[in-house]
Write a protein that binds this DNA or RNA. Structure first.
Lengths: 262, 262
DNA sequence: AACCATGTTTCATTATATGGAACAACTAAA
DNA sequence: TTTAGTTGTTCCATATAATGAAACATGGTT
């Protein structure tokens, strides 16, 4: 699941622990971490101590539970602002969502998966963080396939091999071959569809966001349900979707950072 | 500014680099980091390599710029969900904001500063992340003072000493003594006021969120401007504020984590 | 009182990080 | 074209920090 785990010394080990804690999805005991840890007790213990003292983990003394620390929230705010497409794309997302009246997602590639960095839901405005930071599979979401399709061949093959191919629904693509064939199709059409591949009744149309040099920067999708639109009816959004995606790409491209005074 | 920097070995150094990059607020060059770095070139270089390969930093090859990585956004989503008050408090914030018709903030303590983890703005529903993750000073915000006031004496003194006491406005409390005196008052009244101490024309009433054992879990505030309410009129929110804060505390307390099967 | 599970500390050994200096690659000036 | 000046990358002997087996606490259970 977690892509590469090359050895980056102590720092790598410490950071992998953060993922471990995140995986649990709840505060976790030392012993729980120990059981499926590759490190011996003392080592694990000191790593946790370090991370805790650094504020990357929180520790509840009474209950002896480790959880992800608030420092992460602070850092992520900065990360989101300075290195995601979200701040740039914000007004364009607003516009698109308003125009089509459906849910709009903005995503980026992260280790072959889709990291959602922003979302607009025209019916119910949502509280913050409810969408950003979530991840989804690359091989069975519209944004994921759109981004994979437009990578250069080497990267594309590498990331396709990394996919876990879990069969979520009947239409999920479950082999590398099926996915690769679909990606060819997507490159031709310039849009990807999610045909209830990840969740029943949920469909979407998605496009990649490309830089001037055709590097994949992210992906954009319009999501709806089969009770509202048929797959073929989604085609009607294609023009608006492509236009917005292209505009975001342009904006990101021209986003040269202020003065770099050395 | 950055509170404690005890030596936590290599991991500590690496993490402090993340803060450095975050401080810049924009993608940054190697040489920029080098100039105000306490580490020699080679060391800094390898730390950056490690962090980049770990996805904690992103690197733009063409422009040679480091930025905070997407992995942080993913981790932070988990952190926010599992270790902040926000998910628990969400419905109560909605309720309070709706009832009083003013902006509501939810914050937690982070190294003597206020880390805002959620926010409700009744007039303009905001996009995600626009508020969560931001930090504010502890000594001149309502939530900050409310939380400081209810810490045990040892912690309170320690954190008060850490404050930087910058004079934002005429009413900012700029000495430890003034702040400590104010904190006594706050403990008596059970609410704190921000009397335009951080920003002109912005006032708020705030209360701490306490556990059953009176540990400070966070703080809650109702913010408005002097054009809409006077300071004394803010009193009218006191009952609702205290009730909500208490309910959040209770909820958090009873939030015992599912099964901890070893 | 004896036992067991969980968490913490010690310390000799080993592996890793360190940083001065050399090396590239690229620009700007001579 | 040469020379000097940036900025980024690699080397390698040394110093430092991480390691982990085992001993030690601590608290709960029979």
């Amino acid at each position: 699941m977690t892509a590469l785990k090359k050895n980056d010394g102590t720092v790598g080990k410490a950071l992998s622990l953060l993922d471990k804690v995140a995986e649990f999805g709840r505060p976790v005991r030392f012993s729980e971490l120990l059981t499926d840890s590759e490190y011996p007790k003392a080592t694990l213990y000191r790593l946790l101590q370090t991370l805790t003292s650094q504020g990357m983990l929180g520790y509840d003394n009474e209950r002896q539970l480790y959880s992800l620390g608030v420092r992460l929230v602070r850092l992520a705010h900065a990360a989101w602002q300075q290195s995601s497409l979200a701040p740039i794309a914000r007004p364009l997302l607003d516009q698109l969502s308003l125009k089509v009246g459906e849910t709009v997602h903005l995503g980026q590639l992260d280790h072959g998966q889709v990291l959602y960095v922003d979302k607009r839901n025209p019916t119910s405005p949502l509280a913050m963080y409810s969408g950003a930071g979530k991840i989804g599979p690359g091989y069975c979401t519209g944004i994921g396939k759109a981004m994979l399709a437009f990578l250069d061949e080497e990267q594309r093959l590498r990331l396709v091999k990394q996919q876990s191919f879990h069969r979520y629904t009947e239409t999920t693509l479950v082999t590398q071959e099926m996915l690769l064939a679909e990606l060819v199709e997507i490159r031709q059409q310039r849009v990807a569809f999610d045909r209830e591949e990840h969740e029943a009744n949920i469909i979407c149309i998605a496009a990649p966001i490309l830089s001037g040099t055709n590097r994949v920067l992210g992906g954009l999708s319009i999501t709806t349900s089969t009770t509202r639109y048929s797959l073929s009816q989604l085609q009607q959004f294609k023009a608006d979707l492509l236009e917005t995606a292209q505009n975001i790409g342009k904006l990101a491209e021209s986003w040269h950072f202020p003065e770099i005074n050395s």
